[in-house]
Nucleic acid binder design. Structure first.
Lengths: 236, 236, 236, 236
DNA sequence: AATGAATGAGATTTCATTCAT
DNA sequence: CATGAATGAAATCTCATTCAT
């Protein structure tokens, strides 16, 4: 079986079941799949287990999904909302400065949201990475999700550069990919090891690195002692 | 088959073959494995193919390796030199300032070396990621390699902070993981897409981000206009 | 699985097993297949049964054959000698009349040989008809075998017409197909029903019809009373 | 599933649906079955496809037919009129010679009718051959149809022999089977290959062979040059 | 009746690993 | 040791038929 590109074929081509019972059954298979994939990973998940977990004859699986890949993609689509990389979508156009969200604040929120979402679905996210190495369709899905995110960040960086609050030496394309990768890889590695996962601290540190790397001002108390300023000779 | 921890068992336990012929055959299997893993990925590689590629009977494979995982690990060990995360190993303790390498320069060299090495072995590196999700031993190997690297970076950061040339607000542990992850993820994603891979530019940009994020001075022409300095109102 | 054209792909591409043991095993699988196909027909034959009959692990089947179709084709090739439609291959060029075989005699021999061979392998022959409706490759095999035979007959008919001993109104192409079909269909239908199969009588009658249809002289005792001559009023 | 004798069980046992709607639905299933069997052959036809083609729920199929075999048999019965082997049913008892149809003419008409009917339903006819090898009931149906035909021909041959216009050496039983087989096999093989199908010429040639084989006079112009006569040196 | 979902027996196929020669 | 055949545990997938709604 060549499963290298099933995921991309006709996304959403398969119509939902006609009856409520069918839709319920489909849903229970999806729920079961989420559980099994999270527990066993994609490669070790067996269709039989998914069907069993859904209390379904294993033939019924094929009423709704053609393959393990297909249900996995369906699962990812179901997760789309959560998975949709939560970029700084709340960037506000400043006109008056009153209501304006500081860039650092935007970054922090986005990173915190991302880490939180990743953490919540960590098992599936890890499986996603895994499947992306096996199935071209899933890889494409991942790349597309990633690209959308990267482009949003890229646009933000340009915006900040135009406003003179980000280092103009930074190439927005490279930076967007590097910084989003920094966060997602961090999330991945922290998930992989069962290390303590202190979202707040992680989000803060990642955001600090992110902001610093772009030369964006980070909040520090008055009389701040940041090297980045300190080293620049200044000092009040 | 439970392959979850074969790789780690008895690292290096198996002695090299006694005869020259045996060593040659073992080597040809390793070469074949490198080719097959690179072409097919780990999951799709078949021992049959490796043996065939090495012009060896299938049964002979087991004379030298106990499993697909074992030969993969052997392959990784073989690659150790190249794979050894090329961190700033040439960090020099400065005493006199004459011979001293600037931190940014160290970072740049390390990143360029890493990207180059990754690129050269990209297929195996991707397979490594893949296997790490399947086999605990390989995962451990990866984590250990990664940890060694991370610790080296962590130490460097502390060193720079102690010398007052890096932002003290940055947590070295988080930063080391985030920044190494940034680079390796960047390398991974650029490998995944067949995009042009301009190592020089990538290394520069990554190093710029890296240095900025730590508040380390980056080389710019005199009268430099960098926001990061500009914004600090300064200047020497 | 689309099995519609496996048989034709690379005839004889698969090399024979390297060892004597392997060749023995392959042969025992072929023998088992012959038995199973004969007993159950192609559609109902299971690979498991073939392997069991050959006292082999059922996975071993796949060491030698990729599918049920492939072993069937191998079986047909093995039967080629017997199956090779035994046309009037012993047609002798007459020079002196002494040694010459009468056309009717040639026809009779050929038909008797064909009926005998068909009867001996009747179960496989019936399976062949069956598979030919399912698999394009087998159908091609059958058509080719048939065509070779038809062409030989066609040539004979032309030869007889040229010598003035066969009805010139008969179209050799149509006649060759019709008459070979008459014999093979007769054989098939007699095999299908478990009717008594008196080869001698059948061969005689078929040959009589065959010869008559071409206007070829058939042997009858002196003072013969055959209508066919009688009606013609004659005779020398 | 043992399908070996479903077809023959209770022929016509199942009454037609009581309501007009039911009869319509049954008919649409039959039409769909004809299409699907013709396209996919019996073995590859799926009940699902038949139901889909008839725009019917799968479950409804079983309201009207118990199995694939049953609908196939029903289809054959529906075709009975066309399929009814179009023998020389218009054989006329000659008393006066006025209205009489020449034997050759009868044969020609029958063959032309048969070839035409076969051609029109060739796909189903081929499927019939296929199913006959799989299902005893269908095989019986086929044999019965065939037998009826053969017996009619046998009777004709005896009749002609009695009247002295057919070769008495020919055994009517063998000849009837051989000659009907000749025609049906010819039809089958011409259908299998997509060769040009010139019904007129084929019917003529088959009839010529048929008549010749029985020693029946074929129409030729006066001063005819046919070998069959020519060679007899004759004539009255 | 009609619908379409549910069922599960059954067949194929893969391939890592073992073993006889 | 080399060889390549043997093994069989798994896993997937099909689809005729049954059943709940």
């Amino acid at each position: 079986m060549d499963t290298s590109d099933l995921a991309g074929a006709d996304p959403e081509a398969r119509p939902l079941p006609a009856t409520a019972r069918g839709r319920r059954r489909r849903q229970s298979l999806l729920d079961a799949a989420r559980e099994v994939f999270a527990r066993d990973g994609f490669a070790n998940a067996r269709i039989t287990d998914i069907a069993d977990t859904a209390n379904t004859a294993h033939g019924s699986f094929y009423t709704y999904f053609a393959s393990k890949e297909e249900i996995f993609v369906a699962l990812l689509r179901e997760l789309e909302e959560e998975l949709r990389s939560p970029g700084p979508r709340d960037v506000q156009q400043d006109g008056d400065g009153s209501n304006r969200v500081e860039p650092y604040e935007q970054i922090l929120r986005a990173n915190r949201a991302y880490l939180t979402a990743y953490r919540k679905n960590r098992a599936i996210m890890v499986a996603w990475e895994q499947v992306a190495t096996l199935d071209a369709g899933v890889e494409r899905l991942r790349r597309e999700a990633s690209d959308r995110f990267v482009q949003r960040i890229e646009k933000s960086i340009r915006h900040w550069q135009d406003k003179g609050i980000a280092d103009p030496d930074v190439d927005p394309v490279y930076a967007a990919m590097a910084l989003t990768g920094m966060v997602s890889n961090f999330a991945y590695r922290w998930s992989a090891r069962d290390a303590d996962y202190e979202v707040g601290k992680a989000a803060e540190q990642l955001s600090l690195l992110w902001a610093n790397s772009l030369g964006i001002r980070t909040p520090r108390g008055p009389g701040e002692t940041s090297i980045s300023r300190g080293r620049s000779g200044r000092q009040d």
